[in-house]
């Protein structure tokens, strides 16, 4: 089973990298870009076969280390 964890800075926490890329897209004349947020994706291969247990385990990983919940939010997607 594979878990995909996406980590992003929370709304309201300025994302300097997203802002720089947004500026670049504007410079390149891409129109209609309203916001750009940059995060990271962590792909975890698990031996667990129960989806519920996998989510429970990965949630703990996200809370403990993968995300800093002072400034970041995360989403978890289980695939396969």
């Amino acid at each position: 089973m594979i878990a995909i964890v996406n980590v992003f800075l929370k709304e309201g926490v300025l994302d300097p990298q997203g802002k720089a890329v947004h500026h670049a897209l504007d410079t390149m004349k891409f129109e209609g870009v309203e916001d750009v947020r940059i995060g990271k994706q962590i792909i975890i291969k698990l031996s667990e076969t129960s989806k519920a247990k996998a989510i429970e385990e990965v949630t703990k990983m996200a809370e403990d280390i993968l995300a800093n919940t002072v400034i970041e939010n995360y989403t978890i997607e289980i695939v396969e």
């Binding site: 800075l9 926490v13 300097p16 990298q17 800093n68 002072v70 400034i71």
Partner: peptide
């Protein structure tokens, strides 16, 4: 308390 993130000017 708080957190340290990437410098605003990168």
């Amino acid at each position: 308390e708080g957190a340290l993130k990437r410098n605003e000017n990168l």
